[in-house]
């Protein structure tokens, strides 16, 4: 823990903790935003051979800057090949060739179900969100799902107004009852901690706190009463190399888009 002279932001810690979970052997379906930063950081650090796939049809892409949209030209220019969108969803995703689906969301509940559709009533919404896009079938068809999103009591909620993407439903066994053969969400990487579904109940349980973060801080960012694992570990602080590569990636991205992605 003493090799970390550089300070870091909570968002950087989130990207780095998420990136560390990926390996060279993964075939990863990448959502835009926080998942994209984590997946590319992994590729630029310890997992150079990771296969990254974006739903626009780009297979094995190696962008030098983070794409602003899911279909930026950078993704196509650096891809091994680019296929049409029906083929993407039918052969590659539904075909069972993806090991990890990496999703973000507007809201999540204690069983890692996600909402990106509406806040309020569907027919007369208070806030109309973009909708599901690829997420409902990514959540169902990838071998397992990692979710990354920043904590806050409006994002981590007791009850979702709408289930856009299915996690563990109302608890252990719900996926199997629906005939889903995939594992669903196995990790939720936030800016404060890492959560994993409990082996018995599938309820999200805090298994690691990021450096300097307290249980109270994590609970304050969550709308339900959180469970903490008996053996709670501390996430290793970012290394200087991880921070440097992540910041370089964001700086290149900013120069390319005129915005931090």
């Amino acid at each position: 823990m003493s090799h970390t002279p550089m300070s870091h932001t909570a968002t950087e810690m989130m990207s780095i903790a998420a990136a560390r979970l990926l390996t060279d052997d993964d075939v990863c379906f990448v959502g835009i935003g926080a998942p994209s930063a984590a997946c590319n950081l992994a590729r630029l650090t310890h997992a150079p051979k990771i296969t990254l796939i974006y739903e626009s049809g780009t297979l094995s892409t190696r962008p030098s800057v983070l794409p602003l949209s899911i279909g930026d030209g950078e993704l196509c220019d650096t891809a091994l090949t680019t296929v049409g969108v029906p083929e993407m969803f039918r052969y590659w995703l539904q075909g069972g060739r993806i090991t990890i689906g990496f999703l973000g969301g507007a809201q999540i509940d204690r069983f890692a179900n996600l909402n990106t559709t509406v806040v309020g009533d569907y027919a007369a919404p208070k806030v109309r969100l973009p909708g599901g896009g690829g997420a409902p079938e990514i959540a169902g068809n990838c071998r397992e799902i990692f979710i990354t999103m920043a904590m806050g009591s409006r994002a981590f909620v007791e009850t979702l107004p709408f289930i856009t993407s299915f996690g563990h439903g109302k608890g252990k066994g719900d996926r199997e009852r629906l005939g889903l053969k995939t594992r669903g969400p196995t990790k939720v990487i936030t800016d404060l901690c890492v959560m994993e579904p409990d082996a018995e109940t599938a309820e999200l349980t805090v298994t690691a706190l990021h450096p300097g973060v307290t249980r109270d801080q994590v609970q304050a960012g969550c709308g339900w009463t959180l469970r903490f694992a008996g053996e709670l570990v501390e996430t290793s602080a970012p290394t200087a190399q991880e921070i440097e590569i992540l910041r370089d990636l964001h700086a290149r991205t900013k120069r390319a888009h005129g915005v931090a992605a």
Partner: peptide
């Protein structure tokens, strides 16, 4: 969802009445 629409376009191009896929569960 995207998968549904991509499949539905393909079904349209193939002159089929509907698309079938593994999705929308739960």
């Amino acid at each position: 969802s995207h998968a549904a629409m991509a499949n539905a376009y393909e079904a349209g191009a193939a002159n089929l009445p509907f698309a079938v896929f593994r999705g929308y569960k739960g």
